Simulated assay, not measured.
Amino acid sequence: MEKIKKYIPRIILLDTIIYTLIIVTLYLILSFCKLMFREWIYIVSAIIIMFGFVAGIIQLLLKIKKKIVKVILISIFVMLFLLSTPIIYFFGAFGYTPEHVVEKDGQKFVAYVNGFNRTYVNYYNYKNIFVVGNQKRIEEYYGKGGFDPIENQYGYEYNVENTTYYDENGKIIKTKP
């Protein structure tokens, strides 16, 4: 057991795998409690996991004794990393949904804006800085996409085309055009 405790901090890849397992376990526990992490937790965790895997693989490659094998494997890894970076960036850029803590109808919500093709704002119950309720409570539809109606940096008046209210179980309570 002492040997394991001694080597865990030295192996970055193992630390990253342990961190990933902790995050997945916490995600499952929160799902069971009808909660979910806030968006920023997922973003920070994804960055930590990506850098951990890259650093862990480089660390393992640098431990290879034969110089020619080490150089070839590091070269292959660098090429694969450079080829995959635009793909990761593409999914990160289009998968990002801005979040805002807002007060609506006298209640605190976390609003997630999906404004790629059509603009939707989904409101979830605010719990704390780390978690929100996992059941959508309000959905606002704004029509044509490409903007954030909550941040509204240009001062434009956006009209809500449709608002849907949900109960705690996800059933529609009412819809307003």
Rank of each mutant, 00 (worst) to 15 (best):
E39T: 14
T119I: 01
N122L: 11
Y154G: 05
Y156I: 13
Y27D: 14
I138A: 01
L35F: 10
R137G: 02
E2K: 15
I87H: 07
R38G: 00
L80T: 11
K108L: 12
K171L: 00
I12P: 14
I173D: 01
K104H: 11
I150R: 13
G95R: 04
S45H: 12
S31G: 02
A93N: 13
V54H: 10
I68D: 09
T164R: 11
E140Y: 00
I17Y: 07
Y112L: 08
G170M: 00
D167F: 07
I150C: 09
L28N: 15
Y19T: 11
V131G: 01
V44R: 03
N117P: 00
I12A: 08
Q153W: 11
P98S: 09
P9T: 12
E103G: 14
G92N: 14
R137L: 11
L60R: 11
M36V: 07
K108C: 03
L61D: 08
V44I: 15
I29N: 05
A55T: 08
T85A: 13
K104I: 05
E168G: 00
I76Y: 09
F90I: 10
I18A: 07
Y165H: 02
Y156S: 10
L21D: 11
L83K: 03
K127N: 13
S31L: 11
V54W: 13
L26G: 04
K3E: 14
I150T: 14
L83E: 00
I129D: 11
L82G: 13
D15W: 10
V113A: 00
T16C: 08
I49R: 01
L21T: 12
N117E: 15
K144T: 10
W40M: 03
G95F: 06
